[in-house]
Design a protein around this nucleic acid. Structure first.
Length: 327
RNA sequence: ACCGGGCUAUUUGGA
């Protein structure tokens, strides 16, 4: 129930358990973390003090993850101290990796680096987390250096490593490096991983290399809405909105349902091309045709469309009447 | 002795 996001049910069952041990607590905690309830997750962790039991390595990792998702530096550090005090840093390989990630997610990159340096064993996750941390610091050259370094150390990059390395390439426009990593991915048969394939499409699309993006896209056997979105976003990049609307229809034809992101992309295209009527059409199609509720982002796109065609009063009126606080 | 429940990184979007 926790994994499925039925947290109230999970909670009810947990409360009824005759024995609430560290595993059942952690199960609940994981449910909260994975569904974006970091605060509740930490609350259920705090609860341990009152019930006088000691969290094990798994529970500490899950609580640290909650800190990462919240950017809760102090709490993260507190749990880190507990880890050190109990001498668990070296005994559980997962804890060290998690600490790197948590500090990076809290923006404490120097400490994240320290954690990496302190590790006794650096596995593919350790390296990938470090690469991700460099990308987030906008030090993508350093991230790509790490990729080479880990290979020299004999650690084989996996799907997640490639995803982050490709993001690094994307953020600094490293087209040749992208091709190199792409070749590696094909060689390793990792294009079967839809996350990797989608990232490749997205990076090529952002470079405006639509022909290559399409090539990759065509090779994806298990295409999902993200694949389509990534490609469509590329058409905005090169100003080919005609192709974008064509792909939108093609996607529907192949039975893939658009999601909220799809409509942000479509509406962005309308606004960047100054297509007011088309924008309005898709905006209304969201609720009327697809039973979706336009979010703030979609309204923002419409404000943008109106602004670009000079309809400032209407743009303002939309801001005033939309069901969101304008940001 | 072995096995069985909860753990770490990972894809697309507006301003």
């Amino acid at each position: 129930y926790a994994k499925c996001g039925l947290l109230a049910v999970a909670r009810q069952i947990f409360d009824k358990l005759q024995i609430q041990d560290v595993v059942s607590r952690t199960s609940l905690l994981v449910g909260y973390v994975e569904h974006g309830y970091g605060v509740e997750a930490l609350e259920s962790f705090e609860h341990k003090q009152h019930n006088g039991f000691t969290p094990d390595a798994v529970m500490l990792v899950c609580s640290l993850k909650a800190c990462g998702s919240l950017g809760a530096k102090a709490k993260g550090q507190e749990i880190h101290y507990e880890v050190e005090r109990r001498g668990m840093f070296g005994t559980d390989p997962v804890i060290g990796n998690t600490l790197i990630d948590v500090y990076a997610k809290c923006g404490l990159f120097a400490i994240a680096q320290q954690m990496f340096n302190k590790l006794f064993v650096r596995d593919v996750v350790s390296w990938t987390v470090l690469i991700a941390s460099y990308v987030e610091q906008q030090r993508s050259n350093a991230a790509l250096k790490c990729l080479e370094e880990m290979k020299l150390e004999g650690i084989l990059p996996n799907a997640a490593t490639f995803v982050w390395s490709l993001k690094a390439c994307g953020s600094i426009g490293a087209k040749m490096k992208t091709r190199e990593i792409h070749a590696d991915i094909e060689r390793r048969g990792l294009l079967k991983n839809v996350d990797v394939a989608n990232t490749l499409v997205s990076v090529y699309a952002k470079f405006g290399l639509l022909a290559i993006a399409e090539q990759v896209f065509d090779k994806i056997s298990n295409r999902d809405v993200v694949s389509w979105n990534a490609l469509m976003a590329g058409y905005i990049e090169v100003g080919e909105s005609g192709n974008l609307f064509y792909m939108f229809d093609k996607m529907l034809g192949q039975g893939t349902k658009p999601d909220l992101v799809t409509f942000v992309i479509v509406l962005s295209a309308c606004s960047s091309m100054g297509m007011f009527a088309k924008g309005l059409f898709y905006f209304e199609a969201m609720s009327k045709g697809y039973g979706m509720v336009p979010a703030l982002e979609h309204h923002t796109c419409m404000v943008n469309v109106l602004g670009r065609v000079g309809q400032l009063e209407k743009a303002l009126a939309l801001i005033m009447k939309m069901p969101f606080y304008p940001d």
